[in-house]
């Protein structure tokens, strides 16, 4: 039988990896999105290259490369940190797309309107563009964050003691495999379903135009 205390402990680690990777990916995705939106072809290529590499290698391979292959000091020594960095890199490619799509969704006229009344770039971004772009970004970012949460299960491979790790170990010492994994499946659902609902709600709001109004 899978001990509820272990489930809680595993869940706590799962959430650490999830949130940690979300933060790492956000930090990485902002410059990636900016690179991909510049006019400079070299900078655009760098951004695209990052996205290809980050997303073109399977997440499990990223984790193994970082944990066993590279020497990144403490990151390569602590499984949870390696998982946060590896999954953060993978998610940064998707999140970069979300940020870029959000910024692209704001019509040029909004920036021109801001320019015509002498707003500076900073105010234009924070007062005019982002209020419209963020809901668009969040709708797809929330959907990607579900994939990210499910990918945290891979961290068990490098020994991070998250949910799958405990379920697997419980099975090794005699717990029922079906019941153990069904149980943690429900724990994942408790997070993925609400986030999915939020993502869809944001998405319909954006599509209906209550957030982003044409012209």
């Amino acid at each position: 039988m899978l001990d509820p205390a272990y489930i809680l402990e595993g869940l706590w680690i799962t959430i650490q990896i999830w949130f940690g990777a979300l933060i790492v990916s956000t930090v990485l995705a902002i410059p990636v999105a900016m690179l991909r939106r510049t006019k400079n072809p070299g900078a655009r290529f760098l951004g695209a290259l990052w996205a290809w590499i980050a997303r073109g290698i399977p997440p499990i391979a990223w984790l193994i490369i970082i944990f066993f292959g590279l020497s990144l000091g403490i990151i390569s020594a602590v499984p949870v940190l390696a998982a946060i960095v590896g999954l953060g890199i993978v998610n940064s490619a998707y999140l970069g797309d979300s940020i870029r799509a959000g910024l692209d969704s704001v019509p040029d006229g909004q920036r021109e309107g801001a320019a015509s009344v002498a707003l500076n770039r900073w105010d234009t971004l924070f007062r005019v563009v982002l209020p419209q772009a963020v809901p668009v970004m969040l709708a797809s970012a929330a959907a990607y964050s579900i994939t990210l949460l499910k990918n945290t299960a891979i961290a068990s491979i490098i020994g991070a003691n998250e949910l799958v790790f405990y379920a697997y170990n419980a099975v090794q010492v005699g717990a029922d495999p079906l019941l153990s994994f069904f149980t943690i499946g429900l724990v994942y659902l408790a997070f993925t379903v609400p986030v999915g609902i939020i993502a869809r709600w944001l998405d319909t709001r954006v599509r209906r135009g209550t957030v982003k109004v044409a012209h």
């Binding site: 006229g109 021109e112 309107g113 005019v128 419209q132």
Partner: peptide, 16 residues
Amino acid sequence: RKRVGMVFQSFNLFST
């Protein structure tokens, strides 16, 4: 731009 105003065909009001 503080001294020269502009009115656009498509208004370009801040939609939020």
